[in-house]
Design a protein around this nucleic acid. Structure first.
Lengths: 298, 298
DNA sequence: CCGCCTTACGAGTTTCGTAAGCATC
DNA sequence: GATGCTTACGAAACTCGTAAGGCGG
Protein backbone atom coordinates (compact mmCIF):
# COMPACT_ATOMS: atom_id res chain seq x y z
CA UNK A 1 0.00 0.00 0.00
CA UNK A 2 2.67 2.42 -1.09
CA UNK A 3 1.23 5.88 -1.78
CA UNK A 4 2.81 5.55 -5.19
CA UNK A 5 0.83 2.43 -6.01
CA UNK A 6 -2.27 3.97 -4.49
CA UNK A 7 -1.96 6.95 -6.77
CA UNK A 8 -1.77 4.82 -9.91
CA UNK A 9 -4.67 2.74 -8.63
CA UNK A 10 -6.97 5.73 -8.26
CA UNK A 11 -5.83 7.07 -11.61
CA UNK A 12 -6.59 3.79 -13.35
CA UNK A 13 -9.96 3.59 -11.63
CA UNK A 14 -10.78 7.17 -12.54
CA UNK A 15 -9.82 6.82 -16.19
CA UNK A 16 -11.03 3.27 -16.55
CA UNK A 17 -7.90 2.42 -18.47
CA UNK A 18 -4.38 1.22 -17.72
CA UNK A 19 -2.89 2.85 -20.79
CA UNK A 20 -4.57 6.21 -20.20
CA UNK A 21 -3.37 6.18 -16.60
CA UNK A 22 0.14 5.32 -17.79
CA UNK A 23 0.10 8.26 -20.17
CA UNK A 24 -1.12 10.61 -17.46
CA UNK A 25 1.41 9.45 -14.90
CA UNK A 26 4.36 9.21 -17.26
CA UNK A 27 4.80 5.44 -17.08
CA UNK A 28 4.56 2.72 -19.65
CA UNK A 29 1.43 0.65 -19.87
CA UNK A 30 3.44 -2.26 -18.58
CA UNK A 31 4.62 -0.47 -15.46
CA UNK A 32 1.05 0.42 -14.53
CA UNK A 33 -0.02 -3.16 -15.02
CA UNK A 34 2.78 -4.32 -12.74
CA UNK A 35 1.97 -1.73 -10.11
CA UNK A 36 -1.66 -2.78 -9.96
CA UNK A 37 -0.55 -6.40 -9.81
CA UNK A 38 1.79 -5.53 -6.94
CA UNK A 39 -1.00 -3.81 -5.04
CA UNK A 40 -3.32 -6.74 -5.58
CA UNK A 41 -0.60 -9.16 -4.50
CA UNK A 42 0.12 -7.10 -1.39
CA UNK A 43 -3.53 -7.18 -0.32
CA UNK A 44 -4.06 -10.66 -1.70
CA UNK A 45 -7.16 -9.48 -3.53
CA UNK A 46 -8.26 -8.47 -7.01
CA UNK A 47 -8.98 -4.76 -6.98
CA UNK A 48 -9.96 -4.20 -10.60
CA UNK A 49 -12.02 -6.05 -13.14
CA UNK A 50 -10.32 -5.98 -16.54
CA UNK A 51 -12.04 -5.45 -19.80
CA UNK A 52 -13.81 -3.30 -19.04
CA UNK A 53 -11.63 -1.85 -16.28
CA UNK A 54 -13.74 -1.23 -13.19
CA UNK A 55 -13.11 -1.54 -9.46
CA UNK A 56 -14.14 -4.75 -7.72
CA UNK A 57 -16.04 -4.57 -4.44
CA UNK A 58 -12.78 -4.50 -2.47
CA UNK A 59 -11.42 -1.96 -4.96
CA UNK A 60 -14.31 0.36 -4.30
CA UNK A 61 -13.64 0.22 -0.59
CA UNK A 62 -10.00 1.01 -1.23
CA UNK A 63 -10.95 3.91 -3.48
CA UNK A 64 -13.01 5.38 -0.70
CA UNK A 65 -9.98 5.36 1.59
CA UNK A 66 -7.39 6.30 -1.00
CA UNK A 67 -8.62 9.83 -1.71
CA UNK A 68 -8.43 11.19 1.85
CA UNK A 69 -5.25 9.22 2.44
CA UNK A 70 -3.44 10.78 -0.51
CA UNK A 71 -4.84 14.18 0.36
CA UNK A 72 -3.42 13.99 3.87
CA UNK A 73 -0.20 12.66 2.47
CA UNK A 74 0.26 15.63 0.16
CA UNK A 75 -0.82 18.01 2.91
CA UNK A 76 1.74 16.58 5.32
CA UNK A 77 4.54 16.81 2.80
CA UNK A 78 3.67 20.35 1.80
CA UNK A 79 3.33 21.43 5.41
CA UNK A 80 6.72 20.08 6.44
CA UNK A 81 8.41 21.74 3.49
CA UNK A 82 6.64 24.98 4.27
CA UNK A 83 7.66 24.84 7.93
CA UNK A 84 11.30 24.52 6.97
CA UNK A 85 11.17 27.33 4.44
CA UNK A 86 11.11 29.63 7.43
CA UNK A 87 8.64 32.29 8.42
CA UNK A 88 7.17 33.83 5.30
CA UNK A 89 6.73 37.57 5.19
CA UNK A 90 3.66 36.99 3.07
CA UNK A 91 0.61 35.47 4.65
CA UNK A 92 -1.99 34.13 2.24
CA UNK A 93 -5.52 33.74 3.47
CA UNK A 94 -7.84 31.22 1.82
CA UNK A 95 -11.50 32.09 2.22
CA UNK A 96 -14.79 30.75 0.98
CA UNK A 97 -16.78 33.50 -0.77
CA UNK A 98 -19.38 34.08 1.93
CA UNK A 99 -16.78 34.08 4.69
CA UNK A 100 -15.50 37.47 3.59
CA UNK A 101 -18.00 39.60 5.44
CA UNK A 102 -17.27 43.33 5.77
CA UNK A 103 -16.24 43.03 9.42
CA UNK A 104 -13.83 40.23 8.62
CA UNK A 105 -12.17 41.84 5.64
CA UNK A 106 -11.68 45.01 7.68
CA UNK A 107 -9.65 43.08 10.25
CA UNK A 108 -7.44 41.43 7.64
CA UNK A 109 -4.32 43.47 8.22
CA UNK A 110 -1.20 42.60 10.13
CA UNK A 111 1.84 44.68 11.08
CA UNK A 112 4.88 44.04 8.91
CA UNK A 113 3.16 41.28 6.95
CA UNK A 114 1.86 41.40 3.42
CA UNK A 115 -1.49 39.66 3.34
CA UNK A 116 -2.89 38.02 0.21
CA UNK A 117 -6.51 36.99 0.08
CA UNK A 118 -7.58 34.12 -2.14
CA UNK A 119 -11.15 32.96 -2.66
CA UNK A 120 -11.60 29.21 -2.92
CA UNK A 121 -14.42 26.69 -2.69
CA UNK A 122 -15.71 26.00 0.80
CA UNK A 123 -14.43 22.41 0.82
CA UNK A 124 -10.93 23.48 -0.15
CA UNK A 125 -10.22 25.93 2.64
CA UNK A 126 -9.16 23.44 5.31
CA UNK A 127 -7.15 21.51 2.75
CA UNK A 128 -5.20 24.59 1.69
CA UNK A 129 -4.42 25.52 5.26
CA UNK A 130 -3.35 22.01 6.18
CA UNK A 131 -1.00 21.84 3.22
CA UNK A 132 0.42 25.25 4.01
CA UNK A 133 -0.75 26.58 0.67
CA UNK A 134 -2.54 29.18 2.77
CA UNK A 135 -1.50 30.27 6.22
CA UNK A 136 -4.96 31.08 7.41
CA UNK A 137 -8.43 29.99 6.34
CA UNK A 138 -11.85 31.56 6.61
CA UNK A 139 -14.70 29.14 6.13
CA UNK A 140 -18.39 29.72 6.26
CA UNK A 141 -21.12 27.21 6.75
CA UNK A 142 -24.34 26.72 8.61
CA UNK A 143 -24.73 25.23 12.04
CA UNK A 144 -26.73 25.49 15.21
CA UNK A 145 -25.97 28.69 17.13
CA UNK A 146 -22.52 28.71 18.77
CA UNK A 147 -21.76 25.31 17.36
CA UNK A 148 -18.59 24.56 15.41
CA UNK A 149 -18.70 23.80 11.71
CA UNK A 150 -17.89 20.31 10.60
CA UNK A 151 -14.73 20.67 8.56
CA UNK A 152 -12.99 17.90 6.61
CA UNK A 153 -10.19 16.48 8.70
CA UNK A 154 -7.10 16.94 6.57
CA UNK A 155 -4.51 17.68 9.21
CA UNK A 156 -3.76 19.16 12.59
CA UNK A 157 -5.60 22.48 12.61
CA UNK A 158 -6.84 24.96 15.18
CA UNK A 159 -9.73 27.31 14.76
CA UNK A 160 -12.66 29.11 16.28
CA UNK A 161 -15.80 30.93 15.27
CA UNK A 162 -15.65 34.66 14.59
CA UNK A 163 -19.13 35.55 13.38
CA UNK A 164 -22.65 34.25 13.35
CA UNK A 165 -25.54 35.67 11.48
CA UNK A 166 -29.16 35.03 10.66
CA UNK A 167 -29.98 32.97 7.57
CA UNK A 168 -32.63 34.07 5.13
CA UNK A 169 -34.37 32.38 2.24
CA UNK A 170 -34.09 34.43 -0.91
CA UNK A 171 -37.42 34.62 -2.69
CA UNK A 172 -38.34 36.14 -6.06
CA UNK A 173 -40.64 39.16 -5.96
CA UNK A 174 -44.25 38.15 -5.64
CA UNK A 175 -43.49 34.69 -4.30
CA UNK A 176 -46.40 33.35 -2.23
CA UNK A 177 -44.19 33.08 0.85
CA UNK A 178 -42.65 36.52 0.62
CA UNK A 179 -45.18 38.09 2.97
CA UNK A 180 -44.19 35.78 5.83
CA UNK A 181 -41.93 36.83 8.65
CA UNK A 182 -40.40 33.47 9.42
CA UNK A 183 -40.22 30.09 7.73
CA UNK A 184 -39.55 26.55 8.85
CA UNK A 185 -37.07 24.72 6.69
CA UNK A 186 -39.32 21.70 6.31
CA UNK A 187 -41.98 23.88 4.66
CA UNK A 188 -39.55 24.58 1.85
CA UNK A 189 -38.73 20.99 1.01
CA UNK A 190 -41.25 20.89 -1.80
CA UNK A 191 -39.87 24.01 -3.49
CA UNK A 192 -37.25 24.12 -6.24
CA UNK A 193 -33.77 25.26 -5.25
CA UNK A 194 -30.63 26.79 -6.66
CA UNK A 195 -27.41 24.85 -6.28
CA UNK A 196 -24.42 27.18 -6.14
CA UNK A 197 -21.01 26.83 -4.51
CA UNK A 198 -21.40 30.17 -2.74
CA UNK A 199 -24.78 29.42 -1.20
CA UNK A 200 -25.71 26.75 1.31
CA UNK A 201 -25.54 23.35 -0.42
CA UNK A 202 -28.86 21.62 -0.96
CA UNK A 203 -27.55 18.39 0.62
CA UNK A 204 -27.02 20.26 3.87
CA UNK A 205 -30.63 21.45 3.76
CA UNK A 206 -31.89 17.88 3.49
CA UNK A 207 -29.65 16.91 6.35
CA UNK A 208 -30.86 19.75 8.56
CA UNK A 209 -34.51 19.35 7.74
CA UNK A 210 -34.31 15.60 8.09
CA UNK A 211 -36.44 15.06 5.02
CA UNK A 212 -35.89 14.50 1.31
CA UNK A 213 -36.98 17.02 -1.25
CA UNK A 214 -35.23 20.31 -1.94
CA UNK A 215 -35.09 19.44 -5.63
CA UNK A 216 -32.45 21.32 -7.56
CA UNK A 217 -33.89 23.35 -10.41
CA UNK A 218 -30.80 25.24 -11.48
CA UNK A 219 -27.04 24.93 -11.00
CA UNK A 220 -24.62 27.83 -11.04
CA UNK A 221 -20.94 26.96 -11.12
CA UNK A 222 -19.40 30.35 -10.46
CA UNK A 223 -19.00 32.05 -7.14
CA UNK A 224 -20.34 35.48 -7.93
CA UNK A 225 -22.89 36.38 -5.32
CA UNK A 226 -24.78 38.89 -7.43
CA UNK A 227 -25.35 36.26 -10.08
CA UNK A 228 -26.84 33.98 -7.44
CA UNK A 229 -29.14 36.78 -6.29
CA UNK A 230 -30.15 37.55 -9.86
CA UNK A 231 -30.97 33.90 -10.48
CA UNK A 232 -33.03 33.76 -7.32
CA UNK A 233 -34.82 36.98 -8.23
CA UNK A 234 -35.59 35.55 -11.67
CA UNK A 235 -37.34 32.64 -10.01
CA UNK A 236 -34.88 29.93 -11.03
CA UNK A 237 -34.98 28.55 -7.51
CA UNK A 238 -34.78 29.40 -3.84
CA UNK A 239 -31.50 29.79 -2.02
CA UNK A 240 -30.36 30.23 1.55
CA UNK A 241 -27.92 33.02 2.35
CA UNK A 242 -26.71 35.00 5.35
CA UNK A 243 -28.81 38.10 5.85
CA UNK A 244 -25.92 40.49 5.16
CA UNK A 245 -25.42 39.03 1.69
CA UNK A 246 -28.70 40.50 0.52
CA UNK A 247 -28.62 44.11 -0.66
CA UNK A 248 -32.32 44.44 0.05
CA UNK A 249 -33.49 42.91 3.26
CA UNK A 250 -37.06 42.63 1.99
CA UNK A 251 -36.04 40.11 -0.65
CA UNK A 252 -35.61 37.39 1.94
CA UNK A 253 -37.48 35.70 4.73
CA UNK A 254 -35.71 34.67 7.91
CA UNK A 255 -35.55 31.03 8.87
CA UNK A 256 -37.14 30.20 12.20
CA UNK A 257 -36.81 26.45 12.43
CA UNK A 258 -34.64 24.55 12.81
CA UNK A 259 -32.61 27.13 14.68
CA UNK A 260 -29.54 27.51 12.46
CA UNK A 261 -27.20 30.36 11.71
CA UNK A 262 -24.61 31.25 9.16
CA UNK A 263 -21.23 30.92 10.83
CA UNK A 264 -17.73 31.97 9.89
CA UNK A 265 -14.66 30.30 11.39
CA UNK A 266 -10.94 30.93 11.16
CA UNK A 267 -8.67 27.94 10.70
CA UNK A 268 -4.91 27.89 11.04
CA UNK A 269 -2.14 25.34 11.32
CA UNK A 270 -0.13 24.72 14.45
CA UNK A 271 3.03 25.99 12.87
CA UNK A 272 1.90 29.46 11.89
CA UNK A 273 2.69 32.06 14.52
CA UNK A 274 1.81 34.87 12.17
CA UNK A 275 -1.46 33.19 11.23
CA UNK A 276 -2.35 32.75 14.91
CA UNK A 277 -1.70 36.45 15.49
CA UNK A 278 -4.02 37.44 12.68
CA UNK A 279 -6.58 34.90 13.88
CA UNK A 280 -6.51 36.41 17.36
CA UNK A 281 -7.10 39.78 15.79
CA UNK A 282 -10.18 38.41 14.05
CA UNK A 283 -11.58 37.09 17.30
CA UNK A 284 -12.66 40.56 18.36
CA UNK A 285 -14.71 42.21 15.59
CA UNK A 286 -17.98 40.49 16.46
CA UNK A 287 -17.88 41.00 20.19
CA UNK A 288 -21.67 41.22 20.24
CA UNK A 289 -22.09 37.47 19.76
CA UNK A 290 -19.15 35.46 21.12
CA UNK A 291 -19.19 32.10 19.36
CA UNK A 292 -17.53 29.22 21.15
CA UNK A 293 -14.09 27.93 20.36
CA UNK A 294 -13.51 24.69 18.56
CA UNK A 295 -10.69 22.39 17.64
CA UNK A 296 -11.25 20.80 14.25
CA UNK A 297 -8.85 18.20 12.93
CA UNK A 298 -6.86 15.73 14.91
CA UNK B 1 7.42 9.62 2.45
CA UNK B 2 6.86 5.89 2.40
CA UNK B 3 4.62 4.75 5.29
CA UNK B 4 7.43 2.37 6.15
CA UNK B 5 9.92 5.21 6.60
CA UNK B 6 7.32 7.24 8.42
CA UNK B 7 6.84 4.45 10.91
CA UNK B 8 10.52 4.19 11.73
CA UNK B 9 10.69 7.97 11.98
CA UNK B 10 7.97 8.15 14.61
CA UNK B 11 9.53 5.22 16.46
CA UNK B 12 12.92 6.88 16.54
CA UNK B 13 11.38 10.15 17.67
CA UNK B 14 9.36 8.42 20.35
CA UNK B 15 12.28 6.43 21.75
CA UNK B 16 14.86 9.12 21.18
CA UNK B 17 17.27 6.54 19.86
CA UNK B 18 18.12 4.92 16.53
CA UNK B 19 19.30 1.70 18.12
CA UNK B 20 16.30 1.32 20.39
CA UNK B 21 13.99 1.92 17.42
CA UNK B 22 15.93 -0.65 15.41
CA UNK B 23 15.48 -3.20 18.18
CA UNK B 24 11.77 -2.50 18.44
CA UNK B 25 11.18 -2.68 14.70
CA UNK B 26 13.42 -5.67 14.05
CA UNK B 27 16.01 -3.86 11.96
CA UNK B 28 19.68 -3.22 12.45
CA UNK B 29 20.84 0.12 13.71
CA UNK B 30 22.30 0.75 10.29
CA UNK B 31 19.04 0.17 8.46
CA UNK B 32 17.25 2.67 10.66
CA UNK B 33 19.97 5.21 10.06
CA UNK B 34 19.62 4.72 6.32
CA UNK B 35 15.85 4.97 6.46
CA UNK B 36 15.98 8.26 8.31
CA UNK B 37 18.61 9.49 5.89
CA UNK B 38 16.36 8.49 2.98
CA UNK B 39 13.43 10.36 4.49
CA UNK B 40 15.53 13.43 5.06
CA UNK B 41 16.91 13.23 1.54
CA UNK B 42 13.40 12.86 0.12
CA UNK B 43 12.20 16.01 1.88
CA UNK B 44 15.53 17.74 1.53
CA UNK B 45 15.49 18.61 5.22
CA UNK B 46 17.01 17.41 8.49
CA UNK B 47 14.24 15.91 10.58
CA UNK B 48 16.20 14.83 13.64
CA UNK B 49 18.96 16.33 15.72
CA UNK B 50 21.54 13.67 16.62
CA UNK B 51 23.18 13.32 19.95
CA UNK B 52 20.86 13.73 21.62
CA UNK B 53 18.23 12.45 19.18
CA UNK B 54 15.33 14.90 19.04
CA UNK B 55 13.05 16.12 16.26
CA UNK B 56 13.94 19.34 14.50
CA UNK B 57 11.27 21.96 13.92
CA UNK B 58 10.36 20.37 10.59
CA UNK B 59 10.48 16.98 12.26
CA UNK B 60 7.94 18.04 14.83
CA UNK B 61 5.58 19.15 12.10
CA UNK B 62 6.01 15.81 10.38
CA UNK B 63 5.37 13.95 13.63
CA UNK B 64 2.08 15.74 14.01
CA UNK B 65 0.99 14.53 10.59
CA UNK B 66 2.48 11.07 10.80
CA UNK B 67 0.26 9.67 13.55
CA UNK B 68 -3.11 10.26 11.88
CA UNK B 69 -1.62 9.34 8.53
CA UNK B 70 -0.44 5.93 9.71
CA UNK B 71 -3.70 5.41 11.56
CA UNK B 72 -5.72 5.97 8.41
CA UNK B 73 -3.32 3.82 6.50
CA UNK B 74 -3.81 0.86 8.81
CA UNK B 75 -7.55 1.45 8.89
CA UNK B 76 -7.76 1.46 5.10
CA UNK B 77 -5.79 -1.74 4.77
CA UNK B 78 -7.77 -3.54 7.45
CA UNK B 79 -11.05 -2.36 6.01
CA UNK B 80 -10.29 -3.55 2.48
CA UNK B 81 -9.16 -6.94 3.73
CA UNK B 82 -12.25 -7.29 5.84
CA UNK B 83 -14.55 -6.26 3.01
CA UNK B 84 -13.17 -9.06 0.87
CA UNK B 85 -13.35 -11.65 3.63
CA UNK B 86 -17.07 -11.64 3.03
CA UNK B 87 -19.91 -11.17 5.44
CA UNK B 88 -18.87 -12.29 8.91
CA UNK B 89 -21.31 -14.23 11.00
CA UNK B 90 -19.87 -12.57 14.07
CA UNK B 91 -20.44 -8.90 14.59
CA UNK B 92 -18.30 -7.22 17.21
CA UNK B 93 -19.50 -3.97 18.68
CA UNK B 94 -17.02 -1.48 20.14
CA UNK B 95 -18.54 0.80 22.74
CA UNK B 96 -17.33 3.46 25.12
CA UNK B 97 -18.35 2.65 28.70
CA UNK B 98 -21.11 5.22 29.09
CA UNK B 99 -22.58 4.40 25.69
CA UNK B 100 -23.90 1.10 26.97
CA UNK B 101 -27.13 2.34 28.47
CA UNK B 102 -29.75 -0.23 29.44
CA UNK B 103 -31.95 0.60 26.44
CA UNK B 104 -29.04 0.19 24.05
CA UNK B 105 -27.75 -3.09 25.42
CA UNK B 106 -31.25 -4.50 25.27
CA UNK B 107 -31.40 -3.85 21.52
CA UNK B 108 -28.03 -5.45 20.84
CA UNK B 109 -29.27 -8.64 19.26
CA UNK B 110 -29.50 -9.62 15.62
CA UNK B 111 -31.05 -12.63 13.92
CA UNK B 112 -28.53 -15.32 12.88
CA UNK B 113 -25.58 -13.21 14.02
CA UNK B 114 -23.41 -13.73 17.05
CA UNK B 115 -22.78 -10.33 18.62
CA UNK B 116 -19.69 -9.60 20.71
CA UNK B 117 -19.54 -6.46 22.79
CA UNK B 118 -16.20 -4.88 23.59
CA UNK B 119 -15.65 -1.84 25.80
CA UNK B 120 -12.96 0.56 24.61
CA UNK B 121 -11.90 4.13 25.29
CA UNK B 122 -14.09 6.80 23.77
CA UNK B 123 -11.39 7.94 21.33
CA UNK B 124 -10.83 4.43 20.02
CA UNK B 125 -14.35 3.59 18.94
CA UNK B 126 -14.32 5.29 15.53
CA UNK B 127 -10.84 3.95 14.90
CA UNK B 128 -11.89 0.36 15.55
CA UNK B 129 -14.90 0.68 13.30
CA UNK B 130 -12.92 2.28 10.49
CA UNK B 131 -10.34 -0.46 10.60
CA UNK B 132 -12.99 -3.14 10.68
CA UNK B 133 -11.77 -4.36 14.04
CA UNK B 134 -15.36 -3.76 15.12
CA UNK B 135 -18.34 -3.78 12.82
CA UNK B 136 -20.34 -1.30 14.80
CA UNK B 137 -19.45 1.39 17.29
CA UNK B 138 -21.32 3.05 20.12
CA UNK B 139 -19.81 6.34 21.27
CA UNK B 140 -20.95 8.69 23.93
CA UNK B 141 -20.05 12.30 24.38
CA UNK B 142 -21.58 15.62 25.18
CA UNK B 143 -23.05 18.09 22.72
CA UNK B 144 -25.82 20.59 22.26
CA UNK B 145 -29.24 18.91 22.02
CA UNK B 146 -29.78 17.03 18.72
CA UNK B 147 -26.31 17.92 17.57
CA UNK B 148 -23.84 15.34 16.26
CA UNK B 149 -20.75 14.42 18.24
CA UNK B 150 -17.40 15.40 16.86
CA UNK B 151 -15.68 12.13 16.14
CA UNK B 152 -12.09 11.74 14.94
CA UNK B 153 -12.12 11.35 11.18
CA UNK B 154 -10.36 8.07 10.56
CA UNK B 155 -12.25 6.86 7.54
CA UNK B 156 -15.54 6.79 5.70
CA UNK B 157 -18.15 6.16 8.39
CA UNK B 158 -21.88 6.58 8.79
CA UNK B 159 -23.74 7.12 12.00
CA UNK B 160 -26.56 8.79 13.83
CA UNK B 161 -27.66 9.60 17.34
CA UNK B 162 -29.73 7.09 19.25
CA UNK B 163 -30.10 8.60 22.70
CA UNK B 164 -29.80 11.88 24.53
CA UNK B 165 -29.96 12.44 28.20
CA UNK B 166 -29.60 15.11 30.83
CA UNK B 167 -26.17 15.71 32.31
CA UNK B 168 -25.68 16.07 36.04
CA UNK B 169 -22.79 17.20 38.18
CA UNK B 170 -21.94 14.62 40.79
CA UNK B 171 -21.42 16.25 44.18
CA UNK B 172 -20.25 14.76 47.44
CA UNK B 173 -22.81 14.73 50.26
CA UNK B 174 -22.96 18.04 52.06
CA UNK B 175 -21.40 19.98 49.20
CA UNK B 176 -22.47 23.65 49.32
CA UNK B 177 -24.04 23.38 45.87
CA UNK B 178 -25.99 20.20 46.51
CA UNK B 179 -29.14 22.02 47.47
CA UNK B 180 -29.41 23.73 44.09
CA UNK B 181 -31.70 22.55 41.36
CA UNK B 182 -29.64 23.66 38.39
CA UNK B 183 -26.12 24.85 37.77
CA UNK B 184 -24.35 26.84 35.10
CA UNK B 185 -21.13 25.25 33.94
CA UNK B 186 -19.20 28.50 34.33
CA UNK B 187 -20.02 28.52 38.05
CA UNK B 188 -18.07 25.30 38.44
CA UNK B 189 -14.85 26.46 36.78
CA UNK B 190 -13.27 27.28 40.13
CA UNK B 191 -13.98 23.84 41.58
CA UNK B 192 -11.65 20.83 41.53
CA UNK B 193 -12.52 18.03 39.12
CA UNK B 194 -12.01 14.35 38.54
CA UNK B 195 -10.39 13.27 35.31
CA UNK B 196 -11.55 9.81 34.26
CA UNK B 197 -11.85 8.17 30.85
CA UNK B 198 -15.45 7.18 31.53
CA UNK B 199 -16.63 10.65 32.53
CA UNK B 200 -16.72 13.82 30.49
CA UNK B 201 -13.13 15.01 29.90
CA UNK B 202 -12.17 18.20 31.67
CA UNK B 203 -10.82 19.71 28.43
CA UNK B 204 -14.29 19.48 26.97
CA UNK B 205 -15.67 21.39 29.96
CA UNK B 206 -13.26 24.25 29.40
CA UNK B 207 -14.19 24.28 25.75
CA UNK B 208 -17.92 24.35 26.48
CA UNK B 209 -17.72 26.92 29.23
CA UNK B 210 -15.34 29.05 27.21
CA UNK B 211 -13.19 29.74 30.24
CA UNK B 212 -10.11 28.25 31.85
CA UNK B 213 -10.24 26.63 35.22
CA UNK B 214 -11.70 23.19 35.94
CA UNK B 215 -8.50 22.21 37.68
CA UNK B 216 -7.95 18.48 37.87
CA UNK B 217 -7.59 17.26 41.45
CA UNK B 218 -7.59 13.53 40.86
CA UNK B 219 -7.06 11.18 37.93
CA UNK B 220 -8.58 7.74 37.62
CA UNK B 221 -7.28 5.55 34.81
CA UNK B 222 -9.79 2.72 34.91
CA UNK B 223 -13.24 2.70 33.40
CA UNK B 224 -15.27 1.40 36.28
CA UNK B 225 -18.17 3.71 36.80
CA UNK B 226 -18.76 2.86 40.45
CA UNK B 227 -15.18 3.79 41.27
CA UNK B 228 -15.74 7.18 39.67
CA UNK B 229 -18.89 7.64 41.73
CA UNK B 230 -17.08 6.59 44.90
CA UNK B 231 -14.28 9.05 44.22
CA UNK B 232 -16.78 11.82 43.63
CA UNK B 233 -18.68 10.91 46.79
CA UNK B 234 -15.43 11.00 48.74
CA UNK B 235 -14.89 14.56 47.63
CA UNK B 236 -11.86 13.96 45.38
CA UNK B 237 -13.42 16.16 42.75
CA UNK B 238 -16.54 16.91 40.78
CA UNK B 239 -17.50 15.01 37.68
CA UNK B 240 -20.12 15.28 34.97
CA UNK B 241 -22.16 12.20 34.09
CA UNK B 242 -25.41 11.33 32.35
CA UNK B 243 -28.28 11.24 34.82
CA UNK B 244 -28.91 7.51 34.35
CA UNK B 245 -25.37 6.67 35.46
CA UNK B 246 -26.16 7.77 39.00
CA UNK B 247 -27.80 5.19 41.22
CA UNK B 248 -29.19 7.93 43.41
CA UNK B 249 -30.59 10.89 41.61
CA UNK B 250 -30.15 13.15 44.63
CA UNK B 251 -26.37 12.84 44.41
CA UNK B 252 -26.23 15.09 41.39
CA UNK B 253 -27.38 18.48 40.22
CA UNK B 254 -28.60 19.00 36.67
CA UNK B 255 -26.75 21.36 34.39
CA UNK B 256 -28.79 24.26 33.08
CA UNK B 257 -26.29 26.27 31.07
CA UNK B 258 -24.88 25.94 28.56
CA UNK B 259 -27.60 23.68 27.22
CA UNK B 260 -25.76 20.40 26.69
CA UNK B 261 -26.78 16.79 26.82
CA UNK B 262 -25.15 13.41 27.03
CA UNK B 263 -25.49 11.81 23.62
CA UNK B 264 -24.95 8.31 22.29
CA UNK B 265 -24.29 7.64 18.60
CA UNK B 266 -23.91 4.52 16.52
CA UNK B 267 -21.12 4.44 13.96
CA UNK B 268 -20.66 1.91 11.19
CA UNK B 269 -18.63 1.52 8.04
CA UNK B 270 -20.05 1.73 4.54
CA UNK B 271 -19.31 -1.89 3.86
CA UNK B 272 -21.16 -3.51 6.72
CA UNK B 273 -24.65 -4.58 5.79
CA UNK B 274 -25.10 -6.49 9.01
CA UNK B 275 -23.85 -3.56 11.06
CA UNK B 276 -26.29 -1.25 9.28
CA UNK B 277 -29.12 -3.62 10.12
CA UNK B 278 -28.23 -3.63 13.78
CA UNK B 279 -27.79 0.14 13.71
CA UNK B 280 -31.26 0.55 12.23
CA UNK B 281 -32.58 -1.60 15.03
CA UNK B 282 -30.95 0.71 17.56
CA UNK B 283 -32.67 3.71 16.07
CA UNK B 284 -35.85 2.78 17.92
CA UNK B 285 -34.58 0.99 20.99
CA UNK B 286 -37.94 1.17 22.70
CA UNK B 287 -39.88 -0.73 20.06
CA UNK B 288 -37.50 -3.67 19.66
CA UNK B 289 -37.93 -6.82 21.67
CA UNK B 290 -34.85 -8.98 21.03
CA UNK B 291 -35.39 -12.72 21.05
CA UNK B 292 -33.95 -14.86 23.79
CA UNK B 293 -33.92 -12.21 26.49
CA UNK B 294 -36.24 -11.66 29.36
CA UNK B 295 -38.60 -8.74 29.40
CA UNK B 296 -37.07 -5.36 30.26
CA UNK B 297 -37.30 -4.17 33.82
CA UNK B 298 -35.63 -7.06 35.61
C1' DC C 1 37.73 3.85 25.21
C1' DC C 2 32.86 3.30 24.93
C1' DG C 3 28.42 4.15 23.18
C1' DC C 4 26.04 5.54 19.28
C1' DC C 5 25.23 7.18 14.79
C1' DT C 6 27.21 7.17 9.92
C1' DT C 7 29.36 5.36 5.88
C1' DA C 8 31.17 1.66 2.68
C1' DC C 9 30.17 -2.21 0.33
C1' DG C 10 28.03 -6.36 -1.41
C1' DA C 11 23.94 -9.67 -1.86
C1' DG C 12 19.26 -10.05 -2.63
C1' DT C 13 15.18 -7.86 -4.14
C1' DT C 14 12.36 -4.59 -6.46
C1' DT C 15 11.05 -1.65 -10.33
C1' DC C 16 10.73 -0.11 -14.79
C1' DG C 17 11.17 -0.34 -19.88
C1' DT C 18 11.32 -3.12 -24.18
C1' DA C 19 9.24 -6.59 -26.50
C1' DA C 20 6.54 -10.45 -27.14
C1' DG C 21 2.08 -12.89 -25.83
C1' DC C 22 -2.79 -13.17 -25.60
C1' DA C 23 -7.73 -12.19 -24.85
C1' DT C 24 -11.71 -9.60 -26.15
C1' DC C 25 -14.33 -6.59 -29.05
C1' DG D 1 -7.31 -7.81 -36.82
C1' DA D 2 -7.01 -3.90 -33.71
C1' DT D 3 -6.95 -2.53 -29.09
C1' DG D 4 -5.36 -3.09 -24.65
C1' DC D 5 -3.89 -5.78 -20.62
C1' DT D 6 -0.33 -9.35 -19.25
C1' DT D 7 4.02 -11.74 -19.11
C1' DA D 8 9.14 -12.42 -19.96
C1' DC D 9 13.36 -10.67 -19.32
C1' DG D 10 17.30 -7.73 -18.47
C1' DA D 11 19.28 -3.37 -16.62
C1' DA D 12 19.16 -0.05 -13.10
C1' DA D 13 17.88 1.23 -8.56
C1' DC D 14 16.80 0.23 -4.09
C1' DT D 15 17.16 -2.02 0.63
C1' DC D 16 19.12 -4.29 4.16
C1' DG D 17 22.94 -6.50 6.78
C1' DT D 18 27.90 -6.81 7.92
C1' DA D 19 31.67 -4.31 8.99
C1' DA D 20 34.48 -0.42 9.30
C1' DG D 21 34.58 4.60 10.30
C1' DG D 22 33.81 8.97 13.00
C1' DC D 23 32.54 11.69 16.96
C1' DG D 24 31.23 13.12 21.48
C1' DG D 25 31.36 12.03 26.44
Amino acid sequence: MDPHLLRTFVTVARLGSFSAAAAELGYTQSAVSQQIAALEADLGLPLLHRRPVAPTFAGERLLEHAGPLLLRHRAARADVLRAAAGPARRLTVAASPLACTPAVTRALALERVEVTLRTVARERVAEQVASGSAGLGLVDGIAAPSDPLRLPDVGPLSGFGIAEEELVVVLPAGHPLSGRRGLALADLAAALWLQAPAAVPVERLRELAGVDGFRVAFRYDGDDLRTVLNLAAAGHGLTLLPASALPDRAAGVALVAPRVVHRVEVVYGEGGGRAAALAAQLRQPSSSTPPGTSAPGS
